[in-house]
Simulated assay, not measured.
Amino acid sequence: MIVFVLVVFYFEVMTQPKRPVAPDLRRARGATSRDCGRFERFSRSDESDGWDIPEEEVPFRTEVREEQARSMINYVRSPDLPFDRSLNPYRGCEHGCIYCFARPTHAYLGLSPGLDFETRLIARPNAPEVLERELRRKSYRVATLAIGTNTDPYQPVERDLGLMRACLEVLRDYRHPVAIVTKGALIERDIDILSDMAELGLVRVGVSVTSLDAQLSRKMEPRAPVPARRLAMIGRLSEAGIPVRVMAAPMVPALSDPELEHILEAGRDAGADAASWIMLRLPLEVAELWQDWLAEHYPDRAGRIMGHLRDMHDGEVYSSQWHRRMRGTGVYAELVSQRFHRATRALGLAVETPPLRTDLFHRPLRAGDQMQLL
């Protein structure tokens, strides 16, 4: 009898219809729900207790918890990536980009890839110390370290915590090459460090510009700087001698991809010296979050957009195959690719950027260290 009750309870909970959070409670957020991730046995939803008393509904606020990191350098073995290691001072991202492929990582923490990802953040306050410890190991071999490939290191919480700046100071002192991807205007705060590293050929920055339409950007990336502000970032970084790439990423078929050439031209005019692009990716929970977002904001285009994506991935909304996941295949994907290459050639952005220097890496002497004889 007990087993029967448990089975029924499990079945009822797992088959509950998913309920979106009221718009007033998620203003300036990307996701429409906070449904559980793929590892949770039970789903959760808010239900009335039946009493004739108004329920207290509190808007989603950003909260930050701390995590003591045991390691900071994450080694990756993906053959379609131009780097083999990355670093993330934060888990989750307040920018709230609905399309973010990093959302599923919050499921490993027992949190929702939806609203939890953009409101329940985790900071690693010991990141600079752990990073330096790893760089000091005799077994460490230097190569470009990518930052911002999972969550944005210049999201709003960085203003108060300064973990990214502290990590940059370590990398500067060790003369370690770093490639940064961001939408955050807070990167301008660190121009002093970045310009010093740029003089030595140790840094390159990529600024993501998804659309030039401020209204579309506001819906897709609710707490990221507006497109005009990101172009201004490119200009300030470029003026400081820091090489910048404009990243038309992700391109959404039939929604933002008509802007591709305009984005590249605006980036070039702002000071970018190179460009790249990525097609929209919908891994794991992101697929459902994205389709819920489409149904709310662009129901008239949802069928067309999802149809193009399925055409690119053999009938599925996403394929994780190497060398295909970021571009897709088929007629539409090839058309966007051809447009990109044609535009970059015309704009002078079709260049091979020189590799960042690794020969300058050194471990600064600390108190008690023995100097080497030459």
Score class of each variant (00 low, 15 high):
M1R: 12
V5P: 01
V7S: 11
F9Y: 14
T15Y: 08
P17G: 10
V21W: 03
D24P: 06
D24I: 09
A28N: 15
G30L: 11
S33T: 15
E40K: 12
S45A: 14
D49Q: 08
G50N: 10
W51G: 04
E56P: 01
M72L: 14
V76S: 01
S86D: 02
E94Q: 14
P104Q: 02
H106A: 14
G110I: 07
G114K: 07
F117W: 11
P125L: 11
E129S: 12
E129D: 12
L131K: 09
R136Y: 05
L145K: 03
A146G: 00
P153F: 05
P153D: 04
V157F: 03
R159H: 13
R165M: 04
Y174C: 09
R175C: 10
H176W: 03
V178S: 03
V181W: 00
D190V: 08
L200P: 00
L200I: 00
R204H: 11
G206Q: 13
S211N: 01
D213L: 06
L216K: 13
R218E: 12
K219V: 13
P225E: 06
M233C: 08
I234L: 04
L237I: 05
E239W: 01
G241V: 02
I242W: 09
R245H: 01
V252L: 11
D257W: 08
A275F: 09
L284C: 03
V286A: 03
V286P: 01
W290C: 09
W290H: 13
Y298K: 07
Y298H: 15
D300L: 11
R301L: 15
G307H: 07
S320H: 12
R325C: 08
T329M: 11
E334N: 14
S337A: 15
R339A: 06
F340N: 07
F340A: 06
R342C: 07
P355C: 07
F361W: 11
R363K: 13
G368Q: 08
M371Y: 02
